[in-house]
Nucleic acid binder design. Structure first.
Lengths: 190, 190
DNA sequence: CGCGGGTTTGATGATGCTCAAGCCCGGTGG
DNA sequence: CCACCGGGCTTGAGCATCATCAAACCCGCG
């Protein structure tokens, strides 16, 4: 049993050991091998996923039938399709591991019950949502203001750990670029 | 005193009249004329803004010195620069009215105090943040998958009310287009 | 009537995509 | 231990999309 989620929660609110026990009744933890699916398109499993350890990507298939990555998640990050989660509708996305990973998940009914039992977790999730929204706003700003070349260079220098763990063509996809174009950029930088 | 915020909160949680009184001690409401600034770049006023009535835009100035709009807000929407709000750092953005508007705002210290006095508001703000994040994810998906032409057409048919209230060049900016390009698209559709 | 914000026009050009092919390298089976 | 296979990365030619720039136009408002 990996307890990064507990640690993460305790960064934001106090959580007694008995509350921790209650929490563990509502969440589910499992291991995935590289390239396994945590969530499939059209699945009815509407959950929030917490990466205890590992690396995930969330993507959809566009009209040209190619995978379009919209988000990565590394250790101690939450990831989910919130539209689907909130409305309880099928998701357009796939969530898949990039490395062997350990994931803790909670679906919407479980979350509701958990929040009734431990209301102060509302605060934790408010803070998480707030942070994720801040991150989304920031990414959006970068995509508005930067040329594709600058976007790539900025990403490489800002998140060097990704370059180690994630293949180039996935980074390209995430940034809205083609693998060929990224290849050209790398050549140019030498 | 406009009470759309109260109504909005009551859609999500119960709020007694006495709690409403407490709430009103922490928030601030004011009217703005068309084109007034609700927040200036580099200001230290780190607040969440709720549009009781009216229409706002949030934008920054890019390296070519042109305004880049990243978000609109109509009646009963929240808007803010969360990165600045969370970290208490100066904002890169301007928030300005497009029409005469009534805005209710709350800054981060006030919010913290309010949440201590009425903890169940944590739930309300969690839900709001969740919804905003869902909206941000959805917009991001559209910008990944659609051509600029499709983006514009989709926006026009999905949000006809904006076309009435917001000048074309602002819509163009929000969608990452030039006014000239949008002009060309409209001509083409006749 | 004149001013100014917003929109339109059209010519020119850059950015970054498409497509097809080849290459590199690590893993697997013979 | 070598040969092959395949996923990922690279190359280059051709091209589409959309931005840029400068100018004119339109129209509501003072």
């Amino acid at each position: 049993m990996n307890d990064n989620l507990i640690k993460h929660i305790r960064k934001h609110i106090d959580l007694s050991d008995s509350e921790t026990m209650i929490l563990s009744k509502y969440v589910e933890q499992s291991s995935y091998k590289r390239k396994e699916f945590v969530m499939q398109e059209n699945s009815d499993c509407k959950s929030l996923f917490f990466v205890e350890k590992g690396c995930l990507r969330m993507y959809f298939i566009n009209e040209k039938a190619v995978e379009q990555i919209v988000q990565f998640a590394l250790d101690s990050w939450w990831i989910s399709d919130l539209k689907s989660f909130i409305n309880n509708t099928p998701s357009d996305y796939y969530i898949q591991t990039i490395e062997n990973s350990i994931i803790t998940s909670i679906n919407s009914e479980q979350l509701e019950q958990l929040l009734t039992e431990i209301p102060k977790l509302e605060r934790y999730f408010r803070i998480i949502m707030q942070q994720e929204l801040a991150a989304a706003q920031f990414k959006s700003k970068l995509m508005y203001e930067m040329s594709k070349e600058d976007l790539y260079n900025h990403f490489v220098t800002s998140f060097p750990e990704f370059i180690q763990r994630v293949p180039q063509y996935m980074i390209a996809s995430y940034l809205g670029l083609t693998p060929e174009y990224v290849s050209g950029l790398r050549k140019k930088k030498l």
